[in-house]
Write a protein that binds this DNA or RNA. Structure first.
Lengths: 216, 216
DNA sequence: GGCCGCATCCCCCGTGCGGGGGATGCCAAA
DNA sequence: TTTGGCATCCCCCGCACGGGGGATGCGGCC
């Protein structure tokens, strides 16, 4: 096998630390290289020990898990971070996954599942607890409003409307008259019930008609 | 143990169906109750057989996996759906997870992993392939590009700029002169190097300064 | 053949907005 | 104390855009 996975545990409750360590030590390919009782100490320990992965409790005195995770991510992005928390999933998960935290598990996780999660995360995968996933997926589709019936040409124009180009510029790109573009735009705005170009684009994005990254 | 998990397999390739069935039959608590070679037949079969979970290939003739999944979800939301697809993850995953599909795995998945995925999904969890997860998480934080130094007031105005309100309307909401808003807007556009209000909003959204759902 | 959706093109008007130039008062840092 | 950032307010200009009214030709559908 490969080298063992080097783990740092950060939690303010000694029982939790010891419990985790005991469970994880049963696995031959896992190695506990350190423990810390708050974020500040944990951050220092992570810098010194350079573990493969850090298990961090979210709620801690002095420096909580979120603060520590963000700082550690900045200091050494190669160290994987697995957030541990109680049974509730609060809104901080969005900031955390956005910051690139690899793992997020609840403390009632089965030991075997935790081990699998650790393996997944150290192998570059992401492991999010089903409840976390549900929450994130829920945010993905805030409004799946009824699709608007746009013609293919209108869809094309709509994409161009998301670009910085003026109607005149769009017209010259598409080799048609500016009036044609304005005419399409008028129809689009009416169909989408939007007051102006900017709102139409935002609305289209909400409906999934336009992707944020594919703008001309 | 409990009753076995009743599985319906929907794939247009007989080899894939047989292969899957063979692998899954090795598990004592899994039972293959039916096979179908396209979405239309699969949909009927699902209604008749009432399986616990349906494994659906994404690309199929007649009625593809997405179409079938959405129809089945509508017809009987209690039947879990696990989408099977090739090696690439296309944009349809967003629609699928938004529609509440529980599982999404690539066909190169290890058999053991597939069995675990089936168990997870039938137990009410979500199982998304790591690449899918990455894509979804990536959408949460599209680009965390270098932040632009906006003053608090400018940030506030920027959020209002994403709304349908004209500068005059924003001004009256905030109890300041229209000129003040225009002045802030000018500074914002200059700082963000954007040609107009619409592009500034899009750019701000890309940078994560504005969230799509929190528009005034 | 008639109807209709679709894409193309045209005109006019009012106004929202971008870009340029200012000014004032406040507060904190130097 | 002076400087500089910040928020507020003012004026002018030109253009992009929204909203209203059209027209033409093409293709499919009944």
């Amino acid at each position: 096998m490969n080298d063992p996975i080097r783990i740092l545990i950060v939690d303010d409750h000694a029982v939790v630390r010891k419990g985790l360590a005991m469970v994880l030590r049963l696995e031959p390919d896992l190695e506990i290289v350190g423990e810390a009782e708050n974020g500040r100490i944990g951050l220092e320990a992570a810098k010194n020990l350079n573990p493969d992965i850090v298990l961090v409790d979210l709620v801690m005195p002095e420096m909580d898990g979120q603060e520590m995770a963000l700082a550690l991510r900045k200091a050494n992005p190669k160290i994987k971070i697995m957030m541990l928390t109680g049974t509730e999933v609060d809104d901080r998960v969005f900031d955390l996954v956005a910051a690139g935290i690899e793992g997020y598990v609840l403390k009632n996780i089965e030991p075997g599942e935790l081990v699998r999660a650790i393996h997944a995360v150290t192998h570059g995968e992401a492991y999010l607890h089903p409840d976390v996933m549900k929450k994130i997926v829920g945010r993905i589709k805030p409004h799946q409003t009824s699709a608007v019936a746009l013609t293919p040409r209108e869809m094309e124009i709509l994409e161009w409307m998301a670009s910085p180009n003026t109607y005149k510029q769009i017209a010259s790109r598409l080799n048609v008259s500016e009036e044609t573009i304005r005419s399409h735009a008028k129809n689009i705005l009416e169909k989408m019930k939007q007051p102006n170009r900017a709102q139409a684009v935002l609305s289209a994005m909400r409906m999934g008609l336009i992707k944020l990254d594919e703008v001309k």
